[in-house]
Nucleic acid binder design. Structure first.
Lengths: 241, 241
DNA sequence: GAGTTTTGATGTCTGCACACATCGGTGTCA
DNA sequence: TGACACCGATGTGTGCAGACATCAAAACTC
């Protein structure tokens, strides 16, 4: 059930913390949250426990429930990412995801060329050509769908479960890029060819070529998106000694 | 408090699920867990809620608490990583982390060269030279400590909070590599120089050089470690449509 | 076989006892 | 008189026990 009281309490507090409405250091009491959200203690306690495991709050006896600074949040948690994408940190979150993707995909392509199962390689080639087709015809929604599918296959084919887990986030960046009008109606010729190159290289097990072609795609993507990011402030997490 | 009943329940169930003792599809009842762990219902419920948010279990009315397959686990959660490192999947987890690191660090070096604050750049150079010193003298524990510090600074200096969050996991791979005797007493000359090169390049803002030098380090690391990994089976997460 | 009822598990609420960090008062010593 | 260490009161999270609500699987009826 996605709309249990427990779930709604997590959603309420999570979004408010990440939006900054409840700033770092802010103190709350379980009893106060009960009346504020109009739910019982057990619901509050279970929600707080989950938020605690996400690094959003900590509990101390005799003090209460304290909101933690952003540097303590788990930036890889899907819920945290979703809340950030929905809030005023959307730009910064999209940049972080794009940078992560730019780092991971070339290596994923290399690994896929070495390890991917045969059927996945074939599907990848099919999708790459279908992408080129849809791109040339200017079929934007179909192109987006194929694009997401292509990169999902690539990450999945790496055989690294952490890479594969980025599928959902990558889909988000691709969709976000399209929705925000950062994509031209007709994707660049070279970019389309690079996708085909990646697929073909993986298909024949040429790791170096796969990586290089993927790297081309990522560099182009980053330079396209970086224009709209320059104003996003960067946050430096201190090294813990 | 790290040893609350709640925490111990999470630890107990988490390790047993990830070790495979409680396989995917295994059904449990809250009441049964109460007597098994000898804790009250609220403790069980709060623990199950946290495990649910990690993707380890799901609850269904009238059915119980079902263990989910590994493909549903959140592979980026620090707890999940810790449990996998402590269990029989240690090898596979170390490989995944090393591959992630190999992908991220060169890009982090590039970003650090563009964005890192000045004091961090200076510290990075200092640490790189201290590393070379400790490496040449064969001071293994000190070298490990500096190595961890160096790579933490690099990730932190990227200004990407997701990269910075990998510090802890990177420390784990470096420590694991040293403890398992995969490191020679005297690190290779070239590797030491590459660390200095990365630091110097970042210090003078040369992104391309920083990336290239970091890439050298990663390639050498991967080729060193890959020998002991060849027998680890790879898991391919299916693409969800 | 379709629709209905029963059943059994999680979901939610509440009152209580306990542990323990913090705060403020008390007493001692200089 | 003032500074400081001690110690008990207080408040809040933690853990427990029991009740009722809800809802979906399973059993039953037609």
């Amino acid at each position: 059930m996605t709309s249990s009281l427990h779930h709604r309490a997590i959603e309420n507090l999570g979004t408010r913390i990440i939006s900054g409405e409840l700033p770092a250091g802010h103190l709350m009491l379980a009893e106060q949250l009960e009346v504020e959200l109009k739910v019982s203690r057990s619901v509050i306690r279970e929600a707080v426990r989950v938020l605690q495991s996400l690094g959003l709050v900590e509990t101390t006896k005799r003090v209460g429930i304290r909101v933690l600074p952003a540097s303590r949040w788990n930036p890889f948690d899907p819920q945290v990412i979703r809340w950030r994408l929905a809030g005023n940190a959307r730009g910064a979150q999209l940049r972080s995801l794009a940078e992560l993707r730019a780092a991971v995909e070339p290596v994923a392509a290399e690994l896929a060329a070495q390890n991917a199962p045969a059927p996945l390689r074939l599907e990848l080639v099919d999708v790459a050509y279908a992408m080129r087709d849809a791109g040339n015809k200017g079929e934007v929604p179909r192109f987006l769908e194929l694009d997401i599918h292509f990169h999902s296959l690539l990450l999945s084919g790496s055989g690294n479960e952490m890479f594969a887990n980025l599928m959902g986030q990558v889909a988000e960046t691709l969709t976000g890029r399209t929705v925000h009008g950062l994509m031209p109606d007709h994707p660049h010729e070279a970019a389309l060819q690079w996708h085909v190159d990646v697929a073909e290289a993986i298909s024949r097990g040429d790791a170096a070529a796969a990586r290089e072609a993927s790297d081309h795609i990522m560099r182009r993507t980053m330079s396209q998106m970086s224009e709209s990011w320059t104003e996003q402030p960067r946050v430096f997490i201190p090294v813990k000694r």
